[in-house]
Design a protein around this nucleic acid. Sequence first.
RNA 1: GGUCGGUUAACCGAGUGGUUAGGUAGCGGUCUGCAAAACCGUUUACGGCGGUUCGAAUCCGCCACCGACCUCCA
Length: 489
Amino acid sequence: MRNNLLIYNSLAKKKELFKPLNSPFVGMYVCGPTVYSDAHLGHARPAITFDLLYRYLIHLEYKVRYVRNITDVGHLENDADEGEDKIEKKARFEHLEPMEVVQKYMNTFYKNMAQLNTLHPSIEPRASGHIIEQQELIKILVDKGYAYETNGSVYFDLLTYNEKYKYGILSGRLLDELQSNMRTLEGQDEKRNSFDFALWKKATPEHIMRWPSPWSDGFPGWHLECSAMSTKYLGEEFDIHGGGMDLQFPHHECEIAQSTAAFGKEPVKYWMHNNMITINGQKMARSLGNFITLDQLFSGDHPVLKQPYSPMTIRFFILQAHYRGTIDFSNEALQAAEKGLQKLMKAIETLKKLKPTSISTLDVARLKNKCYEALDDDLNSPILLSHLFEGVKFINSVVDGTEKIDSSGHESLKELFKIFVFQILGLKDEKTGISDEKLTDELMNIIINLRQDAKNNKDWPASDKIRNELKGAGILIKDLKDGAEWERE
RNA sequence: GGUCGGUUAACCGAGUGGUUAGGUAGCGGUCUGCAAAACCGUUUACGGCGGUUCGAAUCCGCCACCGACCUCCA
């Protein structure tokens, strides 16, 4: 097994050699979506980034348990601890049960993820299905003195936590700094300090999603679900936790605090964060009118889009940039990616048909090694792609006769593309979506028009030849007064 | 205001103290009945000003601009 994978650890702020706690087993947790609206461009980035990692770890023969949650309760609209639940709000607008909203957008999310060719995680747990685990975790925190109840709600006591452990190790934020920056919001009189965050919230009478608990009928806080579910499925300590950079603070910082307080040790060995996506240099936001859902991207149905972009174009485009850099979407950039992907796929088709000779001018083993080195360097997919394009150039040069390949080189090069392009990068060939039926119609139109031209020129031998040869292929031409039609025999 | 990150050629986007990343587009050429594809070559690259160094786009300082987070966000 190769064991040279360097991962940039957001906690250490440097690249570190990846060593699983319990090799060959790897536990990996990634924050999934809150399912209250259609999946958008922003969801594609972490999904593809961590799909790449998942695929690579599997390729390296690790036994990976990849957990990605679905947040279907507890994510509030405004402040972390105040405001309406996002899903309830949507349910009210659409006159649906909250769980209907959840189902609807979970379906879209999974559909879009499948289109992007991301593998399903090993477990996709939902917050609402783990209320008991969350309550158990709260009990531990209360018992250990890191949480307190006020009016039926339970809050995490950051000041007490900070005395024993240091809060802010991931984001570099200090507690007193936080205090001076925090806005004063309603309802905070329940808290000992403004920076304390909710573990359990007492439901107001109109709140629909509610569960009984020792403290009140209510619902869990947002940060809690990830700690509860990662602990349940991956243990008190696990290898990798991923998510968007925007989640570093406060979400991941709170997760660290919750788990550390409860179990006395830091939960995660490697924290990984993907960077954000901008559109034409601007942050994607509903208010800026550049908010694009994945369905819109695939259909081209959005004012900023000049054309539809296929799921694989999006995947290729995201892989062309390193996951820790921001990435800017524009029509020009996407069109470039579309062309590049076509070139790659076309060369792979060409490769299959190559005629081997007795000599080879390419060192496939060396190229393969460079591909591994790129991935081992913190998943440097753009470098990997640049190496693969070296292979593309070589393939085309073989066709041109300026390079040679022998049969063993031919086999290993095919294997190389299979591994890196399809298995690890997770790309796939998307034939332009013309159905066979539509193609047949178009081809027959062309043939009938050619025959009509011949008839117009009184070129009867040509027109008869077309009719007879089509008959041989099982297609009957019937001349009409005006034009012709065809049918299968 | 605080914290952090970025500024690379027409566009996207890697990377490095001295040697062509790659993709796309443009230009010239080869090939071709024409076209397409492919191949070869090519276009003011490294925000500004200082410093360290034999040598910096790569290290340091200052400035400008952009962005993220600080409030829900992938």
